[in-house]
C-alpha cells in the first residue's frame, strides 16, 4: 500500500456512511411507530442521521482534497453522471405518477435518494473503465 493509497483510505468515510444509513433507517423505524410521544425526543432521533450525514460529508471532503488529478476527474464524471441519472429518474417517476397515479403514487419520492449512491457508483465504474 503506497502513501497515496494510505492517505486515501476511505475507512472512516465508509464507517460513518454505514452509521448514517443505519441511523436513517433506525430513526424512520422508530418515528413511524407510536413508541415515543415526547416531541423533543422525536426531533432528536430525527436529527441524528442528519448529524451523521454531515460527518460523512466532512470525511468524504477530506478524501477528495487528497485525490490526484485523474481520481478527481473520475469523481467529476461520476458525480455529473449521478446528477443527470437522478434527474432522469425523478422526472420519469413524476411523469409516471401523472400517467398512472394509482400505481406510482405509492412510490415515495423521499426514497429516491437511496438510489443516488447506487447511481453514483455506476458513474464511478463508467469513469474508471474509461481511464483505468
Amino acid at each position: 500500500m503506497n502513501t497515496q493509497t494510505r492517505r486515501n483510505n476511505p475507512g472512516v468515510a465508509v464507517f460513518l456512511g454505514t452509521l448514517w444509513f443505519i441511523a436513517y433507517f433506525g430513526a424512520r423505524a422508530l418515528l413511524e411507530r407510536p413508541l415515543i410521544s415526547s416531541l423533543a425526543v422525536r426531533y432528536l432521533i430525527a436529527m441524528l442521521p442528519v448529524v451523521l450525514a454531515g460527518l460523512t460529508i466532512l470525511a468524504v471532503a477530506r478524501l477528495v482534497r487528497r485525490l490526484d488529478e485523474m481520481q478527481l476527474r473520475i469523481q467529476v464524471i461520476a458525480l455529473s453522471t449521478g446528477f443527470l441519472l437522478t434527474a432522469l429518474l425523478l422526472m420519469a417517476l413524476a411523469l409516471a405518477q401523472y400517467a398512472e397515479p394509482s400505481r406510482f403514487a405509492t412510490i415515495r419520492l423521499t426514497e429516491v435518494w437511496v438510489a443516488i449512491p447506487a447511481i453514483y457508483f455506476i458513474g464511478v465504474a463508467t469513469a474508471r473503465r474509461r481511464f483505468e
Binding site: T3, Q4, N8, D68, Q71
Partner: peptide, 13 residues
C-alpha cells in the same frame, strides 16, 4: 506513484 504522490492507477493510465 508513492514518490510523486499519485495513485498507482494514475501512473498506469
Amino acid at each position: 506513484a508513492d514518490k510523486l504522490s499519485f495513485s498507482r492507477n494514475t501512473i498506469n493510465s
